[in-house]
């Protein structure tokens, strides 16, 4: 088997299993009461982690570049109660314009 096929198959099978494990084993069941509070906090913890890694993350280092201006635009748009799609467009436009400078 070629390296490409091996990689495609292994990563694919593992990805399906990683996503499927929880819902297939526990699907439809209420989580244990102790875990409910943790599940509530997963979204704020993980969304913030995704934001900072996607905006400030580089190849094993932190970077400050045009993406930070896009983030600032998004925060400003949210503060002004703009709809979600306007927040996204504002961030993309500001980032793109900053890269043109």
């Amino acid at each position: 088997m070629s390296a490409i096929w091996a990689t495609v198959l292994l990563v694919g099978v593992i990805s399906v299993a990683v996503r499927g494990a929880g819902p297939v084993v526990l699907g439809g069941r209420e989580p244990p009461a102790r875990l409910v509070g943790a599940i509530e906090l997963l979204a704020p913890a993980l969304l913030t982690a995704l934001i900072v890694v996607q905006v400030f993350g580089g190849d094993r280092r932190l970077e400050l570049d045009e993406r930070a201006l896009g983030l600032a635009a998004a925060v400003l748009a949210v503060t002004l109660r703009a709809p979600v799609i306007a927040v996204v467009i504002a961030a993309a436009v500001v980032t793109a314009l900053a890269r043109q400078l």
């Binding site: 979204a43 995704l50 996607q54 905006v55 993406r67 927040v87």
Partner: peptide
């Protein structure tokens, strides 16, 4: 920058 902006709006 689109995806982090989405996450900001949802966070």
């Amino acid at each position: 920058a689109a995806f982090p902006a989405l996450f900001v709006a949802l966070l």
